[in-house]
Design a protein around this nucleic acid. Structure first.
Length: 220
DNA sequence: CACCAGGCAAGTA
DNA sequence: TACTTGCATGGT
């Protein structure tokens, strides 16, 4: 079986098992973008608390966050962890949009996919995954997002080599799937769902895992 | 108590 | 270039 067939089969199994995930959890593109930074190496439930704080303070807008004192922003996002680091990273991101795109998020997101990704990844604190999460889930571009779950799941099923980097794994998906934002959106969300339920770091398999009988697990 | 979670950058050799 | 470490809260 080809890699393309394997990926399509995995997608079909996960979609059938879990159904559409309706990602990204967030009301606006701006909220999605902020969430992408806050969720770096952090449980989403903690991010939700931080987002709630920002909403209740009435500052979850480009102008609102941009005019906050850095210390106040850090305090509001405290539940998301790494709050000092993330306050700085959000500040860098907002400054990039304000300075390069005149504070017009719609304008920024209407640029070419390449321009969007290059501007994001050039911002200190915005790496490959955060960049692609924003490109896909906030700007709606057909970019496949790779995360820790993606590495773990594909590695354990023998579809990814040990020494593959972020872009190697991203190419594996993008070279073998039709370049559709809706497909990439759903596939990544389903991989995260699978990862949370059945592919934990310390627990490679679990009862009822929909992918367990699909391809053999390697090295456990 | 230990370990983990939808990363990233800076430091070290 | 290739590891290692710091950043931090909240849930299991």
């Amino acid at each position: 079986m080809s890699t393309a067939q394997h990926l399509q089969e995995l997608y079909d199994i996960l979609l059938k098992a879990y159904g559409p995930q309706h990602w990204w959890p967030g009301d606006t593109p701006f909220e999605v973008m902020v969430g992408a930074v806050l969720t770096q190496n952090t449980n989403w439930t903690n991010v939700e608390k931080a987002i709630t704080n920002l909403k209740e303070a009435g500052v979850l807008t480009l102008e609102g966050l941009s005019s906050l004192e850095p210390g106040r922003l850090a305090g509001l996002i405290r539940p998301a962890g790494y709050y000092n680091i993330k306050a700085g990273r959000l500040g860098n991101l907002l400054r990039m949009i304000n300075e390069q795109w005149e504070g017009d998020l719609d304008c920024f997101f209407s640029q070419s996919t390449d321009t969007i990704r290059k501007s994001l990844v050039a911002t200190k604190g915005i790496g490959p995954e955060t960049t692609d999460s924003i490109a896909l889930y906030a700007a709606g571009r057909p970019v496949f997002v790779v995360d820790a779950y993606t590495f773990r799941i594909l590695g354990r099923h023998g579809l990814a080599e040990e020494d593959m980097g972020y872009f190697d794994l991203q190419e594996l998906f993008m070279d073998n799937l039709p370049p559709e934002a809706e497909l990439f959106n759903e596939f990544h969300a389903l991989l995260v769902r699978l990862g949370k339920l059945c592919c934990k770091k310390t627990k490679p398999k679990c009862e009822g895992c929909p992918a367990y009988d699909w391809l053999p697990l390697v090295e456990l």
